[in-house]
Computed example of a mutant assay.
Amino acid sequence: MEKTILVVFLGLCVSQLGGSVAQQWIPANATFYGGSDGSGAMGGSCGYGDLNKYNGAGYGTYTTALSATLYGDAKSCGACYAVACDSSKTGWCKPGASPVTVTATDFCPPNWSVPSDGGGWCNPPRQHFDMSQPAWEAIAVYQGGFVPVKYARAPCRRTGGIRFSISGNDYFELVLISNVAGSGAVSAAAVKGSNTDWMPMSRNWGSNWQSNAYLTGQSLSFQVQTDDGRSVTAYNVAPPNWQFGNMYESSVNFW
């Protein structure tokens, strides 16, 4: 019965992502961090900061850090994963728990001082989820600490449009792209000022993308492509009087 439920759930995930993910559960392992309220999992190497900001429309507390093999130099930032505790391999699974969907917001670094099967859970080539405690406790018992899991990419469901938070200075715009639905993971971005052509941006760190153009005083449009090949264009998201340090929300997303 459990196997049947897992297969059906994965089928829904694949259907909603347009068949862009493998149609099977992939074995991995999981631990947790961040405290019972998830506060210790805020921030993270993807750069999203306070995951509960924007009036509760942020990424929330169901998040995860990824091992290097899954993180891929930040290419998986914003991606969503369905994670199920593998009760066939451990007794620490929460009875009757459904798979939980988590968003990748952080990096779980390797620990080369200990063996991969003895504490170096995030050492390559291991596929490992270091989940926020609230997400972990949705599928596993707190006392377990470490459990085998199965996972698959899942569609990200977001409230509102894609958000663009602009920092930097003249001739250097650093744009945090967040609240991306669908695949969730941004693979390419471009910016256009009201007086310029489209210009490709490069990933600076995490989900922060940079441009080295002088765009002050121009309205800004953005193109966003996700790792499943889909793209959207957000026209005139930031008005001509946009300011560094502000966030601008578009009216488009990968719904």
Score class of each variant (00 low, 15 high):
residue 1 M to G: 13
residue 3 K to M: 12
residue 3 K to H: 14
residue 9 F to T: 15
residue 11 G to D: 08
residue 11 G to I: 12
residue 17 L to A: 04
residue 17 L to Y: 00
residue 21 V to C: 14
residue 24 Q to C: 11
residue 25 W to L: 05
residue 26 I to W: 00
residue 27 P to S: 05
residue 28 A to T: 13
residue 28 A to I: 10
residue 32 F to E: 15
residue 35 G to V: 14
residue 36 S to Q: 15
residue 39 S to L: 07
residue 47 G to D: 02
residue 55 N to M: 07
residue 55 N to L: 03
residue 56 G to M: 14
residue 60 G to K: 10
residue 61 T to N: 14
residue 61 T to M: 13
residue 66 L to A: 10
residue 67 S to C: 03
residue 71 Y to I: 11
residue 71 Y to C: 09
residue 74 A to M: 08
residue 82 A to M: 03
residue 83 V to D: 00
residue 85 C to S: 11
residue 85 C to P: 12
residue 87 S to M: 11
residue 87 S to A: 13
residue 88 S to M: 09
residue 89 K to M: 14
residue 90 T to Q: 01
residue 92 W to L: 15
residue 99 P to E: 08
residue 99 P to Y: 07
residue 102 V to T: 01
residue 105 T to Y: 00
residue 106 D to P: 14
residue 106 D to F: 04
residue 111 N to M: 09
residue 112 W to I: 10
residue 114 V to P: 14
residue 116 S to W: 09
residue 121 W to Y: 02
residue 124 P to D: 01
residue 126 R to N: 13
residue 128 H to G: 09
residue 128 H to E: 09
residue 130 D to F: 03
residue 130 D to W: 03
residue 132 S to T: 04
residue 133 Q to L: 04
residue 133 Q to D: 15
residue 135 A to L: 08
residue 138 A to K: 02
residue 141 V to M: 13
residue 141 V to P: 11
residue 141 V to W: 05
residue 146 F to D: 15
residue 146 F to P: 10
residue 148 P to L: 00
residue 150 K to D: 11
residue 153 R to K: 14
residue 155 P to A: 09
residue 156 C to H: 02
residue 157 R to N: 10
residue 159 T to D: 01
residue 160 G to K: 02
residue 161 G to Y: 03
residue 162 I to V: 07
residue 162 I to T: 05
residue 164 F to E: 13
residue 168 G to W: 03
residue 169 N to T: 12
residue 172 F to T: 07
residue 172 F to C: 10
residue 178 S to W: 04
residue 179 N to R: 05
residue 180 V to T: 00
residue 183 S to I: 12
residue 184 G to L: 12
residue 186 V to C: 07
residue 192 K to I: 01
residue 197 D to N: 15
residue 198 W to Q: 10
residue 198 W to K: 01
residue 201 M to L: 02
residue 202 S to V: 15
residue 203 R to Q: 10
residue 203 R to W: 11
residue 203 R to V: 12
residue 206 G to W: 05
residue 206 G to H: 01
residue 207 S to N: 06
residue 208 N to C: 15
residue 213 A to M: 12
residue 214 Y to V: 11
residue 219 S to C: 14
residue 223 Q to W: 01
residue 226 T to I: 11
residue 227 D to P: 13
residue 229 G to M: 09
residue 230 R to S: 11
residue 231 S to M: 14
residue 233 T to H: 02
residue 233 T to A: 13
residue 238 A to H: 01
residue 239 P to M: 06
residue 248 Y to C: 10
residue 249 E to S: 08
residue 251 S to Q: 15
residue 252 V to P: 05
residue 252 V to G: 01
residue 254 F to C: 08
